[in-house]
């Protein structure tokens, strides 16, 4: 079992080398940088708590990202309910595409939108596999699903994203 000391080293390494990628992965999943850093930090705090309780976290980075994904998904559901109610203020910050949206080409914004439009499971596996370079077996472990389910979700997501890229390549590139 990994002790507190080992975990502290893992955490240091992750914060030093992988933090930005993890935050960006969560932003890619949720379609906005808003709340991504908060979710990753909260997930890291949860990881510390779990390890202190004696739990071994095999794939720390993917575990953190997946926990942050879940947090963002819960938040999105909560915000949607708030909007439906039309009552208390939900997340009304502008800047849904992130502060650097203007600097990006329309293709990339469309790809962000295409990722965001994927079902949640497909979004998770796409980001974990294609962005964080996680092997299918690790993704299955972290998400608690079979490798075949990971492959199936990847296959479907890949088709959707490639279709979006193909559409991008024709009219918009000429503009």
């Amino acid at each position: 079992m990994a002790g507190d000391h080992d975990f502290a080293e893992d955490l240091d390494r992750l914060v030093e080398h992988d933090y930005v990628r993890l935050v960006r992965a969560v932003a890619l999943f949720s379609g906005t940088i808003e709340g991504a850093e908060d979710a990753v930090q909260e997930a890291l705090a949860r990881a510390m708590e779990q390890v202190r309780k004696g739990r071994r976290i095999e794939h720390l980075g993917p575990w953190v990202v997946t926990t942050a994904f879940n947090q963002r998904r819960s938040h999105a559901r909560w915000a949607a309910r708030q909007r439906e109610r039309g009552g208390a203020l939900a997340d009304r910050r502008p800047d849904a595409e992130g502060p650097d949206a203007d600097a990006l080409g329309s293709q990339l914004l469309d790809l962000r939108a295409a990722v965001r439009s994927l079902p949640s499971r497909q979004r998770q596996v796409v980001v974990l596999h294609y962005y964080l370079d996680q092997p299918v077996s690790s993704i299955g472990d972290v998400l608690g699903i079979k490798e075949s389910a990971v492959k199936n979700a990847l296959h479907k997501a890949r088709g959707s994203l490639l279709a979006a890229l193909t559409m991008d390549n024709t009219p918009r590139s000429a503009q």
Binding site: V15, Y19, A25, Q41, E42, L161
Partner: peptide
Amino acid sequence: SLLRERLAAAAAFDVEADPHRVREDVVRRQ
């Protein structure tokens, strides 16, 4: 390869990364 390349570009959100601050924030949250 195309997907990896494009997703990497699409994920280029602006993130401020000061490891010291992040560690402090995480410990505070914990």
